[in-house]
Design a protein around this nucleic acid. Structure first.
Lengths: 124, 124
DNA sequence: CGAATAGGTAACCGATAGGTTACCAATGAG
DNA sequence: CTCATTGGTAACCTATCGGTTACCTATTCG
């Protein structure tokens, strides 16, 4: 499932937002969702397939964390829209300073991410 | 249908991208889609309900155009993610200059948009 | 060891998405 | 006026989504 479709579901958006704040275990994620744990589990699998989150097994627990690069297709698509639409992208105005400040670190982060980690990603 | 779900469909994304370049009639939009015109028509209705496009009747033709503000929920959500995720938002880096340059005009544009136009929007 | 906890998977089910064809109303052109 | 063009709507069908319950495995803890 592509990132766009993945973010089409409000529960999955909520999970992503939650994970953007901190990694979490499945039970904890399921705790503040109105649906059953298996349902959350499946949403997480989809998010992993979409490249938006990564799972890491720690003993009997599975910790999910956000994979920021998974959002690239979305931001890229928005960025690819013609000028008239880009006006809307300026909703990110408030972030300009911070984002630009962190750009260099982020490139390094992404590179490291691809090489060192051996975390799950597909098999949720 | 909310903008996220609306953009979850590749055909609709394509329509939005197309309309970001220029307004167009339904036939023209349907022309370069692999699906039937009624199907495109329904996609357009959904996009209008999501606030992403606006329709304007001109004689027997209906011209659809992009409504940039419809993307705000998306960019806002992305902007609302915690720092780690914002790194991905820097995919918009290349746009920073242009976006900031046009910010003022855009505010004016949005304001004008809400008051003067009386175009359709819901009834596709 | 045995019990509890974490979490994935399977089977099932109702609702919805998205496609098609057929049809209709309205406008514009010859 | 007549006919072609534009485009929405309805009815229908299939596939997929998202939820549930039931079940199983693996790890940790007393």
């Amino acid at each position: 499932m592509d990132p766009f479709a993945a973010l089409g579901d409000p529960v999955r958006r909520d999970l992503v937002a939650r994970l953007s704040r901190a990694p979490a275990r499945v039970v904890d994620l399921a705790a503040d969702q109105a649906i059953s744990r298996p349902a959350v589990s499946r949403h997480l699998r989809l998010l992993a397939e979409a490249g938006l989150v990564v799972a890491e097994d720690r003993g009997r627990e599975r910790h999910y964390r956000l994979q920021p690069s998974g959002l690239d297709p979305v931001t890229d698509w928005l960025a690819g829209l013609e000028p008239p639409a880009r006006f809307a992208a300026s909703a990110l105005d408030g972030l300009d300073l911070e984002v630009r400040r962190t750009t260099r670190e982020r490139s390094a982060d992404r590179a490291a991410d691809r090489s060192t980690h051996t975390t799950t990603e597909e098999t949720a």
